[in-house]
Design a binder for these strands. Structure first.
Lengths: 117, 117
DNA sequence: AGGCGTTATATTTGTTTGGAAATAGCGTTT
DNA sequence: AAACGCTATTTCCAAACAAATATAACGCCT
């Protein structure tokens, strides 16, 4: 019987959510797949949900994060902007650090293992 | 135009949520008010929601967190156990530390202020 | 012109969530 | 026995959310 500490970190801008764990996962998939629909499929997410997420990201950001194109040789696609990539890097760094920090915290808090005897 | 980093921390036990920010707020209100219904009223929360939350806490914890009594001089009430109080202390400490830590993190991450020029 | 694969958006349907209200049970007090 | 104020639980309804489906637009390609 063990306690687990979990955390979620996200970035807001103008009181709107810009980036969270799920959105970053989606952005990474877009980077890999080159398309929103393929990214959604890879993540087992409906296209609509993926589109809604990216729409929210683009609307809250003041600079473009994802640029999409319709039509053309293979139907179109979606690509990250350099700004988008820098956001991912920043988020993942913060997220990882926070996680490491919490792990340390737990060790220094004995009362979280309150006796079960 | 500024970026804000936000975080949520919670404690799980056996893969069920034990304590989060909202639940701790409710537990504190119970401690102050001595009753679940008054605590709910103070927090602008419906009695049902408060009851559901406490029920979830008591079901996931292996030791009692809130002990409630029905009937009696003033109808009954709800009180925290010493274990419940220790949980609150632990959670609030971790939560506060995490918040402070993230604030420090932001300062050391210049890329979060990606140029808007 | 028509097919293709994609983005973009609307419509529908179903599921989950949450509030409001109603009801019951309880133990002290009067 | 009745009143009181709380906990406990059910029922009903509305709102929020999510999944599925359908449709349109677009631009390259054959």
């Amino acid at each position: 019987m063990t306690y687990k500490i979990k955390s979620r970190v996200w970035i807001e801008i103008d009181d709107k959510v810009l980036l969270g764990e799920g959105r970053v996962r989606l952005l990474n998939a877009i980077e890999e797949q080159g398309s929103l629909s393929k990214a959604a499929k890879v993540l087992g997410m409906s296209y609509k949900k993926a589109w809604t997420l990216i729409d929210a990201v683009n609307k809250s950001a003041h600079e473009p994060v994802v640029i999409s194109s319709i039509g053309g040789r293979d139907g179109g696609g979606a690509k990250l902007t350099p700004y988008g990539r820098s956001l991912i890097v920043a988020f993942e760094k913060i997220n990882k650090n926070c996680w490491n920090y919490l792990n340390e915290q737990v060790k220094s808090l004995p009362m979280i293992k309150y006796p079960t005897e």
